[in-house]
Simulated scan of single mutants.
Amino acid sequence: MNDRKPSKPVRKNISATVKFFDEAKGFGFVSPADGSPDAFVHISVLQNTSYQELREGMQINCDLADGDRGQQVVAIHEPEEEEEVVVGADIEITGVVSTYVPEHKYGFVTPDGGGEDVFIHISMLERSEVNPEDIQLNTKVKCVVRPGVKGPIADSLEIL
């Protein structure tokens, strides 16, 4: 039996605000608009959506169920039209991998033109069909980058 499946009824199409989400750790919490307690959200619920991150303050529509430790998000519905505008803020950069820690599944790219290092995560590498073993120090890459809560984050990566 899979312990992650909700055994209680699911509350569908609940509006919620993202309170916190740590992409590196893969989880966070949302605050439902109906006043119910905060709900845990795991990065795995993003897999079958167009969402690539959850930002603090972001409004989402989700399905909630009672888990062993309280409410949890079991599905996230596709973003509203206004979320499309944020995607347009992405930029493309080239740079080199300055840090990659395979056991923690993340690293950073230093842009060629200077500026803040760009966070890279194994889930993005998998979406980009890049083998994590090919990511080494000083590997030349091209990334599509978007703003994140703690700094720039790569949405896609290509080894040059």
Rank of each mutant, 00 (worst) to 15 (best):
H77F: 13
Y106M: 11
S31D: 15
Q52F: 09
G35Y: 14
F21K: 03
R55L: 15
K19T: 15
C62W: 01
V86Y: 07
I43G: 04
E84R: 08
A89Q: 10
G35N: 06
V101H: 05
F27A: 03
A75F: 07
L64S: 03
E78Y: 06
E84F: 09
T94E: 12
Q59R: 13
T49C: 12
V130W: 06
E133N: 15
G95Y: 03
I122Y: 00
E82Y: 07
Y51R: 04
G95I: 02
S128Q: 05
E126A: 14
D38N: 10
L125D: 12
G26S: 00
Q71C: 09
V130S: 08
I60D: 04
V118E: 01
F40I: 05
V74G: 01
V87C: 02
D90P: 00
T110S: 13
D63L: 07
D117Q: 15
D112G: 11
D117V: 11
E84V: 06
G95S: 04
E133Y: 01
I43S: 09
E80G: 05
V74K: 02
V41F: 00
R55G: 08
R127G: 04
D112A: 14
E81G: 05
P102F: 06
S50Q: 11
T49N: 11
Q59M: 07
D66G: 06
A33N: 12
T49Y: 10
N48A: 12
I76E: 00
V96D: 09
K25D: 05
K19F: 08
E103Q: 11
K25Y: 06
G115F: 00
